[in-house]
Simulated scan of single mutants.
Amino acid sequence: MELAQLRYFREIARLGSMTAAARALGLRQPTLSAAVRQLEEELGATLLQRHRGGASLTAAGSELLRHADEIFALLDRAAAGIAGLEHDLVGHFVLGCHESLGAYFLPRLLPVVLKDAPKIALSLRNAPSAEVLAAVLEREVHLGLVVNPHPHPDLVMVPLFADAVDFFVRAPANAPAAPSGAAIYAPESCATHEFTAAIEILNTGPLIFAGRVQQCSELLEQLAERGAVPQRLLSCGDFELVKSLALAGVGVAILPRRIAAYGHEGALRRLHPRLPIVPDEIVLVYRADLPKTRAAAFLKDAIASTSRAMPDIGLRPRPR
């Protein structure tokens, strides 16, 4: 059964005449008659009762017309939906990012999206950067926010903002009020100004870190190269637990600066400016073949705009 046959059949039913339908469709009547005959043979039923005044539907014809109307209504809705995707802010998207990254970034992004594009449906997928990247490649995630991704020929990568994995401790009780903005990461705002004191604090420990994060392993190696070997290591599953323990004064924490700051600005201070850091770059990734709909462009622009408004932490993105 072909759509053209159903379209011809509907026109005959609408006009009640083979001749009138052929004229309206711009077809020869034998072509129309052959199409109806093929339908009747395929369905094994008589669809039209021909008579001198034209053609009328049989019971089988009435049933087919009902289903044909539903089919063409569905096609019309599909066409309208596709047109809407191209021109309106509609659609469903999956946004992927690490939980800790999302905890400080998404509260800035989502109010804008929900207010300005209420017809866009968003789902969130929280996973480590490597898993988000793989999900984007597998088309399970449309837009991913990842840290330090490796280039891939199938992906578009848009640098967003910088971060750095650093050493933090709870601010001393006698510490002056925390300055605003990037000044909190300046040497004068660190917990101690004495490098030997910082090393002693590290060696005494415990040093709290997210064991599965590569940047933490890099910092532990750099500490060892400088002769700093913490006596007690406390490996956690994620940065949120690391941060909670640091806020409780349990020990020194390895944290990205933005994670250390959000919600508790000034409560955690860099331990010392001479301690090593690992620069991070947060990047928007999506497949090069992501449909170029208005909604997709809106989301990419909203992410970029939110990124430009992120607080300064005294670092710049890595040169590319």
Rank of each mutant, 00 (worst) to 15 (best):
L3I: 07
Q5F: 12
Q5N: 08
L6K: 09
R10D: 01
E11S: 11
I12L: 13
L15T: 03
S17P: 04
M18F: 15
A20K: 15
A21E: 02
A21Q: 08
R23W: 02
L25A: 09
R28T: 01
T31E: 07
V36P: 10
V36K: 12
R37S: 13
Q38E: 08
G44T: 00
S56A: 13
L57V: 00
A60K: 10
L64D: 06
L64R: 12
A68L: 04
D69G: 10
I71E: 14
F72H: 11
L74W: 13
L75V: 03
L75D: 03
D76L: 10
R77V: 00
A78L: 15
G81K: 12
G81F: 08
A83Q: 13
G84A: 15
D88Y: 10
F93M: 10
L95G: 05
G96K: 12
G96W: 07
C97E: 05
E99A: 14
G102L: 02
F105A: 04
L106R: 10
A117G: 11
A117C: 10
L124Q: 13
P128Q: 05
S129A: 15
A130Q: 10
V132M: 06
V132C: 10
V136E: 03
R139T: 02
E140L: 08
H142R: 09
L143H: 12
G144W: 10
G144K: 09
P149S: 06
H150R: 14
P151M: 02
P151E: 04
H152T: 00
L155I: 00
M157G: 07
V158C: 08
V158Y: 06
F161L: 04
A162Y: 06
D163S: 11
D166Q: 13
D166W: 12
R170N: 01
R170P: 01
P172L: 05
A175D: 02
P176Q: 06
P176L: 03
P179W: 03
P179H: 08
S180P: 05
G181P: 12
A182E: 11
T192M: 13
A197F: 06
I199T: 11
E200W: 08
I201D: 02
G205H: 11
L207K: 13
I208T: 06
F209M: 00
G211T: 00
C216Y: 02
E218Q: 15
L219N: 07
A224S: 14
E225V: 05
E225N: 09
L233A: 11
C236P: 03
E240V: 01
K243G: 07
A246E: 03
L247A: 09
G249P: 08
A253E: 02
A253T: 04
A253H: 11
R257P: 01
R258V: 01
A260K: 09
H264Y: 10
G266Q: 10
R270F: 03
R270D: 00
P273Y: 09
R274F: 05
R274L: 12
V278Y: 04
D280S: 14
D280A: 11
I282R: 09
L284D: 04
Y286V: 00
Y286T: 01
Y286I: 01
K292A: 15
K292E: 12
L299T: 04
A302P: 06
A302M: 10
I303W: 06
R318V: 00
P319Q: 05
P319L: 03
P319S: 06
